[in-house]
Design a protein around this nucleic acid. Sequence first.
RNA 1: GCUUGGGUGGUGGAACUGGUAGACACGCAGGACUUAAAAUCCUGUGAGCCGUAACGCUCGUGUGGGUUCGAUUCCCAUCCCAAGUACCA
Length: 938
Amino acid sequence: MRTEYQFREIEKQWQSFWEKNETFKSQINKNKPKYFVLDMFPYPSGAGLHVGHPLGYIASDIISRYKRLMGFEVLHPMGFDSFGLPAEQYAIQTGQHPAVTTENNIAKYIEQLKNMGFSFDWSREVRTSDASYYKWTQWIFMKLFNSWYNQETDKAESIDTLTEILTKKGSVNLRAVCDEELPRISADEWNSYSEDEKYKYILGYRLAYLDDSVVNWCPAMGTVLANDEVKDGFSERGGYLVEQKKMRQWSMRITAYADRLLTGLDEVDWSDSIKEQQRNWIGKSIGAEVTFDIENVIDKKIKVFTTRVDTIYGVSFMVLAPEHEWVDSLTTQEQKSAVAEYVKWTQSRSELDRVSEVKQISGVFTGTYVTNPVNDERVPLYLADYVLAGYGTGAVMGVPSGDQRDWNFATHFDLPIIPILDAQKGIEKQADATKEGLYINSGIINGLSYKEATNTLISWLEQRGLGKGKIQYRMRNAVFSRQRYWGEPVPVYFKPTSSGELLPYLIDESDLPLELPKIDKYLPTETGEPPLGRASMEWKYKNQYEYEWSTMPGWAGSSWYWYRYMDSQNKDEFASKESVDYWKAVDLYIGGSEHATGHLLYSRFWNKFLKDLGLVHEEEFAKKLINQGMIQGRSNFVYRVKDSEKVTFVSYGLKEKYQIAALHVDVNIVENDILDVDAFKKSRNDVPDDAEFILEGGKYMCGWEVEKMSKSKYNVVNPDDLISKYGADTLRVYEMFLGPLEQFKPWNTNSISGSHNFLRKFWRLFFDENTQAGKLVDETASADELRVLHTAIRKVKDDLDRFSFNTVVSTLMICVNDLGQLKCHKKSVLRDLLILVSPYAPHMAEELWVALGELPGQISYAKFPEFNPAFLNEESFKYPISFNGKVKLTLDFSSSASSNEIESGVLANEQVIKILAGVSPSKVIVVPKRIVNIVLGK
RNA sequence: GCUUGGGUGGUGGAACUGGUAGACACGCAGGACUUAAAAUCCUGUGAGCCGUAACGCUCGUGUGGGUUCGAUUCCCAUCCCAAGUACCA
């Protein structure tokens, strides 16, 4: 047993103890309630972990350990989201197989994670790039391919139920989510179809489907990207230009779940900001679709979507997106050249121009008129790039009096601005989007209010087949193909129909997993096909059919991984029924907020799908989500004096007197903003030995600034360095002590000594630091000691229950300080306190646990001490006595004293009488166990 | 522009349903121990004022109002910072 706090040996020893004894292995235990604590698993990058990464893991580990102490069977696993771009790019450069890079990086991650003393059940580790894992990702894909969304039952169903319906009733009245251009057919038509025709028709209903869609194509990376991977027209990773391109791609019909994804947000305990981001992403708009006739055109009608159908009498123009497919056919002869020029101009503008350009009004008249269905007014048809082809119908009705963009457009092109509500004001200066007042100039809705008008119009339009109420979503179906190598192969092959058309078929389930083939290079083929095309000579299904060459996107493997943790070794199922029945879903999920509209949305989608299939229990996969705030870098600077003969640096506080240039300096040679001058000289070639340093108070003080943590700013702090200097326990305590978990904060190593001192102080309650003698005694605890202990027990429990990790540390510090004051070395007190400390400093806790004479390793499953209010000594309360809200003194009163007793007691007090100086108070307010306020005057 | 957070000492932060603002920690200053240093321990530390001192007074949670016996907390307005998002009809 150690009597000195040699943290490195202690930590190493217990880490291997835990590993050897599988201390944190969890299993289905029906005698205990379960608790599933999940971290967002990392992508194992080559750079390893920096000090910001473990923040969330520390928090989740503390909760895991706390829940074990509370008697829960805790599932706390870790794994790796190991398919991804960096490994592939490295492969392109070096030829090394991404699997090798990935393997190496994972090994490094595991070592770093184990070094932190996390209580992961490593036997459940998953890696999305392992065939044994992605077999089930592919399996879920197959389920999606074999399912359609029945809006009648509001869930996904097997394709079999669809064929049954088609055979009996056709699709005329079918309420299903499907391709928009898919024709409605009768049962007779369906039954007259050939097998190939039937198969092809059904492709339009599958939840995983092939489609020619406009996608975000990134030429630099040679792949398509999902909407959430594109930011302002550039790829999120790499920052390459992204363009719109029509391509045949796999997609996921996530829009089928739009409404459930929206309503489900109400039942999860996630931050408002994440929920709001998802709501905006889904972008539900309730409105109406209205059909406009086109003058002199019979075979086409223009549909618009509007959220303000009530403003339809104010329409003075109509606008089509320049990319709209009818642009050519709807342009008159006279306008042909003007329109062509405008379309060309909009196309020529790169995404960059579109984004950076100040909003300016542009557009062109097509020469064509449409007819407003409510009043048969002739309305000119324009093109303008403020209308987006990808949203709604790609056409908009222009109501200048009620919409600012329409107003701008109308003013620019000198189109009429028709007032429609008597409450609209100043519409000659700007649009007024009010819904107040009564309608004017508005035919059948004149004199009605907003609500009445909307309903009246929609039913009027519906009766005449001119429109209908409609709900529009901003969210698009999710493109699921990536033209990359390092991802899950799509378990699909292509077989020609009798007419020679290639249709996609699933491979046989028994052929799963469909493993990644070996290829010579990780680049697209010479003909521009995805890298997997390089394997096409020998890589064929049943030696004859071409496989799908694109792979799945990064989010595929991460959209269901929490289920695999439940039963990670299972070869026959994605997870056994028994394990899903027991663990059900995630109780606490901790991770960054950057996944708000990516991973977190897709995961909810897949989870709902799996629930529809009856494979899982919960509609939402994570009840509680905490987003840990990003840890920013804190850079240090030195100030070089310009134009000095010798190389000279001036300390921060004196820099104003000189012409200086600020230079980043490695934060690892700076402590409390004091520069280690010798280390600085050594670390830089451009600083000669005789360089001069102008000091203040004998020290060189550095300046500082908050920036992103990055190598180029010399502000990266490696957890391994801190662990070797202070120990993992100190680092864990310190990261939690830094502030609220969810807050963004700069990393600052300055005050880590405080956390280290706290642990050492705690250690000294057990051992004398100088003599190494044990201090523990068996005496019974005093009332004071019990009061101190139980104050801490209550606060630690309360704070952990509301995930207030930083205040727990303060509480523990106060408790240790107080027990130190009381010179308490009593085993019974320290044993309870040790359990409170153990989630934060598990290694030290194990070591001291043994010192108490307990069994090694048992503290992880000890019982969290029970709070006993009797020890809190609440017979009396110190009342602050305030005068008009200003506290002047405190007085002790018995806890059982009534308000009246307290009031008379206060007024009889000498000091109070003195302060009152003869003035009688107008009122005395006594708040039991809080405060007394004496009101003067008024 | 919109959405969601946030603004408290020299610094990180605390104050849970309105009830002693600044817990805890860093830093700083002073002291004890020591030949010395480290370590440890003790004291002080929001700003200003009065005074020899004890004591006491005033101001103070971005800013300006309001509600209240009482506001960091609730309401209105306004400024600033961060994140997300946008010609979404």
